[in-house]
């Protein structure tokens, strides 16, 4: 796995080690969610939407100098916090590195036991969508 991705993941895992309690982790993710840059409403289109059972996510990407930059938003502040974590890891990476990364670091934050709903409806769908974007850019690059 790409070292940069691995390092950022470890950094996040270490951050979460500071918290003993679920309540603290929850508030930390909410805080991250609040700080996530606001997405322009014009980008919140149906084609950019990943519909979950309890929250919606909109996601779009930019591809500059061989690197991917994601932009995403949600109607759930908690999910926005998860987006912030994913973007921290993936923004500015190369498509092939994102495709190859296991991206299971959230399991090691201890959040997953609390977010069964989000995981099955939102988080996994987001990661899958991010990988699909990366795969798309990778294939495009290879055919050129």
């Amino acid at each position: 796995m790409n070292q940069a991705i691995k390092d950022i993941e470890q950094e996040i895992i270490d951050d979460f080690k500071l918290f003993d309690e679920w309540a603290e982790k929850y508030e930390y993710v909410i805080e991250l969610g609040r700080k996530l840059p606001i997405m322009d409403d014009t980008l919140k289109t149906d084609s950019n939407k990943i519909k979950g059972c309890q929250s919606s996510v909109w996601m779009t990407t930019k591809f500059t100098d061989g690197r991917i930059y994601f932009e995403a938003d949600s109607d759930s502040t908690f999910v926005k916090g998860l987006i912030a974590l994913l973007m921290k890891v993936m923004n500015g990476q190369k498509p092939e590195d994102i495709v190859a990364a296991p991206l299971d670091f959230i399991n090691q934050t201890g959040l997953t036991t609390h977010i069964a709903q989000t995981r099955s409806n939102g988080l996994m769908a987001m990661i899958k969508q991010m990988k699909l974007y990366a795969l798309g850019y990778q294939m495009k690059a290879e055919t050129h």
Partner: peptide
Amino acid sequence: NAMDAGMYLDTLGIAVRTGQ
């Protein structure tokens, strides 16, 4: 968002349901 509030209540040990 209802889920955000439901998860917060969970941190307090209060079990509610959120969603549809």
